[in-house]
């Protein structure tokens, strides 16, 4: 483990395989340039959703993939982010750019509060507890009058597009860029995390808690750190989503479907791998959006049937996700310069 860390440290990003770097750089430039080619708003929406879900899945990946704790109620942090931002914006007129950080802060506090008692649990106990937490948040918010109870919050609309209020009514392109930037920042940070000492320690906690403990790694502290990081990645997506659709209610932002889809995307793409969530999101989000277009009238459950089926098939045949089809040495550090 230590030698791997040393290799990772000695090889900064610019020493990676040149082909990989140029492909990634090319893709990033392409993503920035895409709206200039006159995409219609459906495709913009599709890409926004892919970015959002990739980040959400990455958040789940940090807690489940890196530190091995399966959270089935991760939608709670999404909802907290959405509510915190919208509430501070509506009540005190604080620009979303600042209240996004409020959302992250509140989520982090909740993650610590939830994490201290719950991360002493492991395995099934933790999974069941998080399932209960996800639903409890929904129940509480449905009855909390300060934040509009079951009818939710209607974010005050600005008359015209405004970067300060993060609202754009005439085009979706600015949202596209906002989500894209968050997406890139998050993935870069998580990629750094996965190569850092912290990342290796988290994986040690996941693979063998006893051995980690014997190496003086405080297992429960590291689990809480992972949970907080994960919550802080999730919350901004809730905030941005609230600004994107401008109306939030408990049934939408605390929906158990959110907790399901982040799990699904990560498992499909490749759990514990930084790049897994991108692959998962790029495949699943279009399935969901297109099935909503073509089969929308049938109750909207068709995409969920597919999700369930895909999840079971992946678990049976490819427990490491689709990323395991790609040879390892392309994505990991490549020794040949």
């Amino acid at each position: 483990m230590d030698s791997k860390l040393a290799i990772a440290k000695s090889e900064p990003i610019w020493n990676t395989n040149n082909k990989v770097i140029s492909i990634i750089a090319g893709l990033i430039i392409l993503l920035f340039a895409l709206p200039l080619f006159g995409m219609n708003s459906f495709y913009l929406h599709l890409f926004i959703m892919i970015f959002m879900h990739a980040v959400m899945a990455q958040s789940w990946n940090v807690i489940a993939g890196f530190s091995g704790q399966i959270s089935l109620g991760h939608g709670a942090f999404f909802g907290i982010g959405a509510y915190a931002t919208s509430f501070f914006y509506m009540e005190y007129g604080i620009t979303p750019w600042i209240s996004i950080f409020f959302g992250m802060f509140v989520s982090a506090i909740f993650a610590v509060l939830i994490g201290i008692p719950m991360l002493r649990l492991s395995g099934h106990y933790f999974a069941i507890a998080t399932l209960l937490i996800g639903i409890s948040f929904q129940v509480v918010f449905q009855r909390w009058d300060l934040v509009g109870a079951a009818s939710g919050l209607w974010v005050t609309m600005t008359p015209e597009d405004s970067w300060l209020a993060l609202q754009f009514h005439s085009s979706k392109a600015p949202y596209y860029y906002v989500f894209l930037v968050f997406f890139l920042i998050t993935f870069f940070l998580v990629w750094l995390l996965s190569r850092s000492k912290l990342g290796y320690r988290l994986r040690a906690v996941r693979d063998d808690p006893q051995a980690a403990l014997s190496l003086c790694i405080n297992v429960s502290n590291y689990k809480i750190i992972a949970y907080v990081i994960s919550a802080m990645i999730m919350a901004p997506m809730g905030s941005l989503f609230a600004q994107y659709i401008l109306i939030i209610d408990p049934d939408r932002v605390f929906n158990i479907e959110i907790s399901i889809i982040v799990l699904l995307i990560t498992v499909l793409g490749g759990i514990g791998n930084v790049w897994g969530p991108i692959i998962g999101a790029a495949i699943l989000v279009p399935i969901s959006e297109y099935s909503r277009i073509y089969l929308g009238g049938t109750g909207g459950a068709v995409d969920l049937i597919l999700y369930g089926l895909i999840l079971m098939i992946i678990c049976i045949f490819r427990p490491n996700g689709l990323i395991s089809f790609i040879p390892k040495n392309i994505l990991e550090r490549n020794k040949q310069r």
């Binding site: 699904l264 969920l304 049937i305 999700y307 369930g308 895909i310």
Partner: peptide
């Protein structure tokens, strides 16, 4: 993987 598989089954049956 076991949790994900039975969770997938639950989504599948419900939908």
């Amino acid at each position: 993987i076991q949790i994900c598989a039975t969770f997938g089954l639950s989504i599948f049956i419900r939908s």
